[in-house]
Amino acid sequence: MSDIIRTEHLTFAYPPDEGKDPVPALDGVDLSIRQGSFVAILGHNGSGKSTLAKHMNAVLLPGGGRVWVDGMDTLDEALLLEIRRRVGMVFQNPDNQIVANVVEEDVAFGPENLGVATAEIQARVAAALKAVGMEAFTLHAPHHLSGGQKQRIAIAGVIAMEPACIVLDESTAMLDPAGRREVLDTVKTLNRDKGITVVLITHHMDEAAMADRVVVMDRGRVVMDGPPREILVRMEELREIGLDAPHTVELLHGLRQEGFDVPLDALGIQECAEAILRALA
């Protein structure tokens, strides 16, 4: 399979305060994301993970290096709309990305901008709302919905553009546990059933555990990259860069010190309990 997003020696710095040297937010990132994969990008606040996300659909343009979206260079202005259609973005604050007063109008916003024919927009809106399980709210006013529901509307708005990839830029950070679960279940399903690539920017470890691949960022660089089972067990290293290992991993670490013969990568509750049972027997 091909890469939907590829960065090469990507660097970026925000304009500095007066009289100060620019601090690089991204410092040489080489990353390839395969079409159809589910990638979590982890890092503490200020690690560069959101800056990286904003390069994935040309909201920010590289200061140095290159970014390709489905083979298209994000520096090529003529390709801007096509790049943004292929990689949709869902942001942190649900209230600040909903444009319209009615759910269906909001979902239609992307296709309308793309000049899709009316009948086709109607079909896409219906399909997108169904895909996120919000079809019952088609004619509702968005400000009466819960946080999780608003984020699902935002996801539907992206889906209606028929993208190849969705980037969730800390889209769960402002939600309560129930809202987070709603959003995660939705993107997991979209990834599995429709083959849409998901890039999940987060600092919640349990969310990262759902992904196929975890990329950890620190000070503008990729410092770890691999399947969750390999990354999330590196408790000490994670803690050093301001992240936490899941409690299950912490427990298994502790039990090892007590002489238990347990693996470290039993991340799930069931799995963890089974590993302990085996060690006790």
Binding site: D206, P246, H247, T248, E250, L251, G254, L255, E258, I269, Q270, C272, A273, I276, L277, L280
Partner: peptide
Amino acid sequence: VPQVTQVAMELKRRGVDIDPAVYTVADLR
């Protein structure tokens, strides 16, 4: 409920004689 409590509950359910209401890693350990 905390992850640790969930693990303890699961162990209890499977017949391990452990307090299912622990909630810190240190206590369960």
